[in-house]
Amino acid sequence: MSLEVDEVKKIAKLACLNVAEDDIQSYASNLSNILDLVEQMNAVDTAGVTPMSHPIEAVQRLREDIVTDFNRRDEFQAIAPLTEDGLYLVPKVIE
């Protein structure tokens, strides 16, 4: 399995990662090696095997839809990069 430079660029775009042009080639070679390792999975026929979704086959619990925590906006926004009047600020999206 060998990934081309263009494929790596596409994957980086999907993953929202800005990868420097100089690094693309080394990522392509590393990722290809990892996918080669992963290819070993194909040695086993898994037709009809149920995929495992939880290690001990437990079902996810549901809880009542009720308020369990109080408003801590100021505390949570104190660690945000940029806020104003209780809002998170990002670059302008709509002109």
Binding site: V8, A12, L17, N18, V19, Y27, N30, V38
Partner: peptide, 15 residues
């Protein structure tokens, strides 16, 4: 994300 994550983390995110 590109500046905040190191190389191994980026590799795994991409895989």
């Amino acid at each position: 994300r590109g500046e905040g994550f190191g190389a191994e983390v980026q590799r795994r995110i991409m895989v």
